[in-house]
């Protein structure tokens, strides 16, 4: 196990209040890290358990919490796919290193829409969020996220190209599908956000390709954004903060993310779209900026270059507030461990 002491020379002392300061746009009293997900190899290194231990329902979460604690985070992210609280059944999603947005679709018309086994979010077992109270170190809280987002799930259920056609040729059915998914995701967040172990929520929903949003902003405004507005309001109603994780080119809708949906923080940035340094300058005064060290940069740069860039971003965050250091998206298996550690080691300085 790689402990916090081995990484940073001191014992772990998570303090969720520091992350909250960042999310509120304030200057934290220490450098703060943010990450959506760590790959299983890293979880093994950081927890001391090479493989997930399923001997009890708590065991996999204990491993997760230990890994996040040792890595220096003030929180542990916990996704609905881990807690199995809300899951939209998908068709055959063939996967390699990526998967097609056109595969696995189960809904093609009204008949298949009505036959679809819609999940009931009320039936999820939310006890795990309560039971983890005993596992969390003092000062640490959970950040809860959904099992995919609204647009992501609708694309999975219909297929991207078929959904594109449906938005033009059968708008009534399109509306019903978005509402069926959106209402369930809203209920999920209404249930998890008030739980005392949950300090904030990530609403994860990719909206963009490299050059533009996947659907026109008008379509997003019609079918996607109203549900996000409701989800953020539900999270805020519980006194918690809402972090949007959304990949792709979103410049045309960032004002709405901030002013209309009222997200507190934005996560996921790509150098080829808006490098994190530019994103922080563009939007950092209006919404907190999380992570952003580009995935390709993390995968292919030297540890020295990664640490230097990370330090520079941290310095900006400690000068102006509203920034936590992390990757542009997550830490998948293909990011070399030494590069990940080079990034987080920047908080040492």
């Amino acid at each position: 196990m790689l402990t916090h002491e081995q990484l940073y020379g001191n014992k772990a002392n998570p303090n969720f209040e520091e992350l909250l300061r960042v999310i509120k746009g304030q200057i934290p009293s220490k450098p703060v890290l943010f990450e959506f997900a760590l790959n299983d190899r890293l979880l093994g290194i950081l927890s001391g358990e090479a493989r997930e231990n399923n001997t009890s329902r708590i065991a996999p979460f204990r491993r997760l919490i230990r890994a996040f604690t040792n890595a220096g985070y003030d929180f542990t992210t916990i996704s609905a796919w881990r807690t199995n609280t809300l899951h939209f059944v998908k068709g055959d999603l063939a996967e390699k290193e990526s998967r097609s947005l056109n595969s696995g679709n189960m809904i093609s018309d009204r008949e298949s829409f009505e036959a679809y086994p819609w999940p009931d979010p009320e039936l999820g077992d939310y006890d795990i969020y309560y039971d983890l109270r005993e596992e969390l170190p003092d000062g640490m809280q959970l950040i809860a996220s959904g099992n995919g987002g609204l647009l992501e799930n609708v694309i999975d259920l219909v297929g991207f190209e078929d959904l594109s056609m449906m938005t033009l040729l059968d708008q009534a059915l399109t509306t019903e599908i978005f509402d069926a998914v959106g209402s369930r995701l809203l209920r999920f967040y209404e249930i998890v956000a008030p739980i005392e172990t949950v300090g904030a929520c990530i609403v994860n929903d990719d909206w963009g390709f490299k050059n533009q949003t996947m659907f026109s902003p008008d379509m997003l405004r019609r079918w996607v954004f109203p549900w996000h507005r409701k989800i953020v309001a539900a999270i805020h109603k519980s006194g918690k903060k809402a972090i949007l994780h959304s990949c792709g080119q979103l410049k045309d809708v960032m004002d709405e993310v901030i002013d209309d949906m009222k997200y507190d923080a934005k996560h996921s940035f790509e150098d080829q779209i808006t490098p994190i340094e530019e994103a922080y300058k563009l939007w950092g005064k209006r919404i907190s900026i999380m992570g952003g060290i580009d995935m390709d940069f993390l995968a292919r740069s030297t540890p020295e270059a990664i640490t230097n860039r990370s330090k520079l971003m941290l310095e900006q965050g400690l000068l102006h507030g509203g920034y936590a250091l992390g990757s542009g998206n997550s830490i998948p298996e293909y990011i070399p461990d030494k590069n990940y550690f080079a990034m987080i080691s920047a908080i040492n300085s």
Binding site: A94, K96, S100, L101, N102
Partner: peptide, 10 residues
Amino acid sequence: KGDLHDIGKN
């Protein structure tokens, strides 16, 4: 190879 993404290609 290894990549199933097809939107851009299509």
